[in-house]
């Protein structure tokens, strides 16, 4: 942990009209880590990710990726640097085929051979995508769409992947499978992960470190194991 963090967010504020949703969020993600951001509905988890991705351009504060400030950048520039998000609700393109969805994930790349290779690799990771390659994205089930959304984001060859609620609306068995696959594959490739989850238990178990967000502020932080033992976390998020 001695090296500079891959992603550093400091004093991040974001408001919609007069309503300030983030009041100064601080977080750091180091290369190779899995870090999760947990918290109740409306705590500002998605807003944090959308601010980092520069979709919420009104957000202010310090956002540094790999040592350079991305606070003034456009969303597509952030993607080009290797900071990519799998958004909440998956947001796949419903009337593009599965293959076209994957191609859009590789929009920033120009190496045709490498893109074809990666599509093949994604279909190896999630075999259902190969079966459904010619089908429209909108015809997939929720779990299949989530796999597609993750694979699509990986097509850009990110260095840091931010995932927003990948378990939402998906059968628990499938969630475990997706989590395992993602963790193993990304660990093997050295992709760093910032995970937003409502399912705090699952998130903390697979994370090196975690932050607890409460109404726009970081209330707690620590290693996954520490937070799993923490009384406040157990009471508020784990249901014990």
């Amino acid at each position: 942990m001695s090296a500079a963090p891959l992603l550093r967010v400091a004093n991040l504020k974001c408001a919609f009209g007069r309503a300030e949703v983030l009041h100064g969020v601080h977080l750091e993600v180091h290369a190779g880590e899995i870090v999760s951001l947990i918290g109740a509905n409306g705590a500002g988890k998605s807003t944090t990710l959308m601010s980092i991705s520069r979709i919420h351009r009104q957000a202010t504060g310090c956002i540094e990726f790999d040592g350079r400030s991305i606070a003034g950048m456009a969303p597509e520039q952030v993607v080009r640097l290797g900071l990519v998000q799998v958004p909440e609700g998956r947001r796949i393109f419903p009337r593009l085929t599965v293959r076209e969805n994957l191609e859009m994930g590789a929009f920033t790349r120009t190496d045709r051979a490498g893109i074809a290779e990666d599509i093949d690799r994604m279909c190896g990771m999630f075999p259902i995508l190969r079966e459904r390659a010619g089908q429209l994205g909108g015809t997939l089930s929720g779990g299949e769409q989530q796999m597609l959304a993750i694979a699509r984001a990986l097509m850009s060859r990110p260095r840091l992947l931010m995932m927003d609620e990948p378990s939402m609306g998906i059968a628990p068995l499938l969630v475990a499978q997706i989590f395992r696959t993602v963790r193993d594959v990304l660990r093997a490739q050295g992709v760093t992960i910032l995970l937003v989850e409502q399912n705090a238990n699952a998130a903390l178990r697979m994370s090196d470190r975690a932050y607890v967000l409460e109404t726009g502020n970081v209330a707690l932080s620590g290693t996954g194991a520490e937070l799993l033992r923490d009384e406040r976390v157990r009471a508020a998020y784990l249901g014990h």
Binding site: V79, V84, P87, R91, F93, R152
Partner: peptide
């Protein structure tokens, strides 16, 4: 053409793919 369809279907997602909408 594919980017045009992607932007039409979901501009935010297109942005997150690195497409200059």
């Amino acid at each position: 053409g594919k980017a045009m369809r992607a932007v039409a279907q979901n501009p935010t997602a297109a942005s997150l793919m690195g497409i200059d909408v």
